[in-house]
Design a protein around this nucleic acid. Structure first.
Lengths: 234, 234
DNA sequence: GTTATTTGTTGATAAATATCGATCTGAATT
DNA sequence: AATTCAGATCGATATTTATCAACAAATAAC
């Protein structure tokens, strides 16, 4: 009988605090408890991890891979709020509201997902105030990011929005000026709130102007200062 | 020498928990401590209460009046994130980030504002886990509202956005189908992410179609079901 | 390797929205 | 009552953006 390995990316939550600073605030026994409630599932690229509207019983932490976090808006359109990468806690919006997912999460590449039971997480919040405070910190920071995103979506025109999207990907997700894009053109459009055709056009324009180099999904940001300028002027 | 009255809307924080359920979770001594750190200021309509970019040392709770919570976007444009009414805690986004206001708040009518020192509030979060949990609840709920707003701003056209704005005002702010609007036409535009001229046009259209009655700032929503429909179809 | 099927690309056109200028209103001031 | 001034209004026009149709390229299925 094959040994049941919870994962090949992290042995257990006690080990995991290397990657997740928040967990360093928990005591060994608390970590043990969290570890007991968790389990891992592998997802293939394209598969849905959370589906908007279904009941939320667990928080999600990717231990490998990349996913999109999006809301299903009007007329089948998706709005990608953010890209999820490993070690970010996903699902706090559902912690206390109505136990429903108000967004969907889908794998952009093959992912390993660690699920943590909401109730044990809530228990940690209640019994460990350092943990609670650090968690509040994360929640409030996400609020500020939301404001920036709203400004981008509602006040900038397409060039500014694409610039914002590219800077977001390079600064916060890939942390490099040169990377292999895991998002389709449609995903880029959904991230920046425009049609796929328009997104393609602006990307091509940036390419022709020498601001970026884009060959299929190989993206190289050549002039990030100019992207910043375009982002600021809208 | 005139007696210094902290306010005529609430005597002190011990009294205030009638209006602010969150404070009911604090012990008398904790309320006393919070009360000691607070002070009140009156603002006239149009005055700025928080200015984006300045340092954040206090949280804000209106005890009377109405204010707009907005971010200053590109080219002097404002994006109104929400309307603030009494007893809502304003400013948590600045609690832990960089002690800067990332948004402005301005009085729409004469307001009485109660300021609570951020450090004492943080102390309550640390020492009272019920308080912390309830506060997290509020933070996460605001996240869900953000998602809805982003969908509205980025995926709906003007009719849908105006419908969303009107429903927001009637359902969540005025809690009535008929009210005196404290927002200018420009404010309506800033709330729904469009130009003032366009906002006026759509409002007139709704008026002519008998969905609303709008005379100056006297607004009466006649057919809210239809507004819902318009909101849903974008 | 060939055939489907998706994803990406482009130009032409249509629709949505902003901008501008002119005018109008009502409240505040003289 | 006349004057000023800010907000509101509206038509004409310009700009931005989406849509559509056609096709190319890449990928998956057979």
């Amino acid at each position: 009988m094959a040994k049941f390995t919870k994962t090949d990316h992290c042995i257990n939550c006690l080990d995991c605090n290397k990657n997740l600073p928040l967990l360093q605030l928990l005591s060994p026994s608390e970590l043990e408890e969290l570890n007991a409630s968790r389990f891992e599932v592998k997802f293939k690229a394209g598969e849905t991890i959370f589906k908007q509207g279904t009941s939320a019983t667990h928080l999600l932490i990717l231990t490998s891979g990349l996913a999109k976090f999006y809301v299903e808006g009007v007329q089948e359109k998706q709005l990608i709020i953010k890209i999820i990468k490993p070690w970010e806690i996903v699902g706090q919006a559902s912690l206390y509201f109505d136990n429903r997912h108000h967004y969907s999460v889908a794998a952009l590449v093959d992912c390993t997902a660690c699920f943590i039971e909401i109730e044990s997480f809530k228990k940690m919040i209640r019994q460990n105030s350092d943990f609670a405070e650090e968690f509040i910190k994360k929640c409030t920071q996400k609020g500020i990011y939301s404001f920036e995103k709203m400004v981008s979506l509602s006040q900038k025109q397409m060039h500014g929005r694409i610039a914002d999207g590219l800077l977001y990907l390079s600064d916060r997700i890939y942390e490099s000026d040169s990377f292999l894009l895991h998002l389709s053109r449609q995903d880029i459009a959904d991230l920046t709130g425009m049609s796929k055709d328009s997104a393609i056009r602006i990307l091509k324009e940036f390419h022709h102007e020498g601001i970026i180099e884009l060959d299929g999904r190989k993206l190289n940001i050549i002039n990030s200062e100019q992207l910043e300028r375009i982002s600021e002027t809208g």
